[in-house]
Design a protein around this nucleic acid. Structure first.
Lengths: 163, 163
DNA sequence: GCTATTAGTTGTTAGATGCAACGGTTGTAT
DNA sequence: ATACAACCGTTGCATCTAACAACTAATAGC
């Protein structure tokens, strides 16, 4: 008697998938707009801001690795590094064993700026979080991490899956 | 004896806020990368894809309104429309009462392409959703919508708040 | 009917990004 | 030991994105 599994579950899955797609698309648009709007306040581009944040979160790293974190080509990463170097937000660490690599390290200036940015953002996020129920509030970052990881794992790590 | 409200709750709020910031930053990077990777498969730019999706989701609308939906300047919206027109994905609706406005309407070709894109994405999202518990699965889009709305409401609707 | 406002287009500019080519460095195999 | 391959980073070039400003055409208000 039981209806086949697929006829019950697939349609609802498809609906959820479509709604998830819409929700993510809208979220990305809003976030991009907000970031464009905000980043300029600190005389940084959005990418530069992401790069700084990544270097702080994961510690000093070579240019290429920074690119990997940001899903950017090494040439783009190189130019990002150049911009941050010129603003004295990062510096090149003393020569390493391997003479090819350039280890990028956040300067004190960079840390100060990042703290300021994070503080400003945290103020906004705290207001935002207060509109959510406490359990949602705590679960939200975890859920987003899971979502990110799943999408990231699904998107080919290095090579483009495109076309 | 009871510790003051703030000393207990503020720090946890601050932590949640910082983690939310990190999670959203990473999510946006992954999504941007994925979209860059995917859009080219359909001979569309990422923006063009968003425009098409918006026109389908909200129905025919003038150029400027499309720009509002996408948080884009009207000139950018105009060029987006031009690109979609040239690809025969949208067309200009017959002249309206107000002779200035151009109502953009998705063509049959546009609908076909959008369906294809959505199907491909839905396949991915369905796999993705299966990794979540059923109740999370259903709640996820709602939660993301709420998040989007809150951020969007907080980001100034039209004027830039920057600097 | 003038003038102000609005919708859309186009010119120009700036920034972001990938690809390709190159230069210097390291590692490996003969 | 030397030659060749692989790798890291940089730079030149092309494309895409997007804003701002100037302009045209159409509407609205007086």
């Amino acid at each position: 008697m039981s209806a086949p599994f697929e006829t019950i579950n697939r349609p609802s899955l498809i609906r959820d998938a479509a709604r998830l797609q819409e929700a993510l698309a809208e979220l990305i648009r809003v976030l991009q707009f907000r970031d464009r709007d905000r980043a300029c306040c600190y005389d940084l581009s959005v990418s530069q801001c992401h790069a700084l944040e990544t270097l702080i979160q994961h510690g000093p790293m070579p240019v290429t690795q920074l690119g990997d974190h940001l899903y950017l080509e090494k040439s783009t990463a190189s130019r990002l590094a150049k911009a941050l170097l010129e603003k004295d937000l990062v510096r090149k660490r003393a020569p390493q064993a391997d003479g090819r690599v350039v280890i990028l390290q956040v300067t004190e200036t960079g840390h100060r700026l990042a703290r300021k940015i994070l503080n400003d953002l945290a103020d906004e996020y705290m207001d935002l979080l207060e509109e959510f129920e406490p359990e949602v509030r705590a679960a939200l970052p975890l859920l987003l991490d899971r979502l990110t990881q799943t999408i990231s794992g699904r998107t080919d790590p290095q090579e483009l899956t495109c076309c």
